[in-house]
């Protein structure tokens, strides 16, 4: 095989490569470069990052990002596992129905979802009306424009990712294993916990990583449901950039997010490769 790039490959591959390098890679590198060049001094330094890390606003936003992502990960597991299990074992019709319901929101705009949650969780929303109606509370609860609303909204957005990642591993389980366990005298609960659950762990782990990282870097839903007073990192970056015009802080947050995003992708690749190798070795 010749090692040089052929002319035809170059002609076909160059336009898309140039497009992405010029419009995506260079702008991002430029942003990183700016984050490393503080207004005060000359040359490269970590001054912007140091200032950022010391600021209380950043620390709060980082903490909020992590709290939200942990909750979202836990909730999507709690929701995703039963759904994936039912979807993989139910009759084709039930399965299709479940999948349509789970996957359809993939295509929905964040504004549409956020509006729906406002109707449900707002001050005059469904939940508050109901709770006041049954006399449990007198004043409406604040269920929106806070961290709680972000968690609910992000769980809604990211649930399909978890279901799909679990579904792939569950469907790959050899049904003969369960039959074998049964023939050896294992009862359904034993089969579930000793055979099915261990085999789904790789999908669970990669799904959790995926959901956690997407939640850490999500913007639209946290922006719409969290409001300006409960920003997570991405929203904080937007505020610095678009409302406060504090470029040194904005670029530094962007740098942090960029590193986080890349880090998760590398970790995800590493983990899924590792798991795949283990799975193959086990066979």
């Amino acid at each position: 095989m010749s090692t040089g790039v052929k002319r035809e490959t170059l002609i076909i591959g160059a336009p898309a490569s140039l497009w992405l390098v010029v419009l995506l890679v260079i702008p991002c590198l430029f942003l990183l470069f700016q984050s490393l060049t503080p207004l005060s001094g000359t040359g490269l330094s970590l001054e912007n990052y140091e200032n950022l890390v010391e600021s209380g606003t950043f620390q709060k936003a980082l903490r909020r990002s992590i709290i939200v992502s942990v909750w979202v990960t836990v909730l999507t597991v709690l929701a995703g596992y039963p759904i994936a299990l039912v979807a993989s074992r139910a009759s084709p019709r039930v399965r299709t129905l479940v999948m349509v319901i789970v996957i359809f929101p993939f295509l929905l705009s964040a504004v549409v979802r956020a509006y729906g949650w406002t109707v449900i969780l707002g001050e005059n929303g469904v939940v508050n009306d109901f709770l006041i109606g049954i006399g449990l509370i007198a004043e409406p609860l604040r269920l929106i424009q806070n961290t709680f609303a972000i968690i609910i909204g992000e769980t809604h957005v990211l649930l399909p990712y978890m279901v799909l990642s679990l579904l792939t591993v569950i469907q790959r389980i050899d049904r003969n294993l369960e039959a074998a366990a049964m023939s050896l005298g294992a009862s359904p609960p034993v089969i579930f916990f000793k055979v099915v659950v261990p085999l789904t762990l790789p999908g669970l782990l990669t799904g959790m990583l995926l959901v956690f990282s997407l939640s850490m870097t999500a913007f639209a839903t946290p922006f719409l449901l969290g409001g300006p007073r409960s920003p997570i990192l991405t929203v904080l970056m937007y505020q610095y950039a678009y409302t406060l015009f504090d470029w040194s802080k904005a670029t530094a947050v962007a740098g942090v997010l960029l590193v986080l995003g890349l880090g998760f992708v590398i970790l995800h690749r590493f983990v899924s490769r590792r798991l795949m190798r283990d799975a193959e070795a086990g066979r």
Partner: peptide, 24 residues
């Protein structure tokens, strides 16, 4: 490398790309 480049818009958080593009 070509494959990673083509998939890079999924790797870089959307909001960071938005800001980076806006910056340029």
């Amino acid at each position: 490398a070509f494959e990673i480049l083509m998939l890079s818009p999924l790797i870089i958080p959307g909001v960071v790309f938005g800001f980076a593009f806006f910056n340029v």
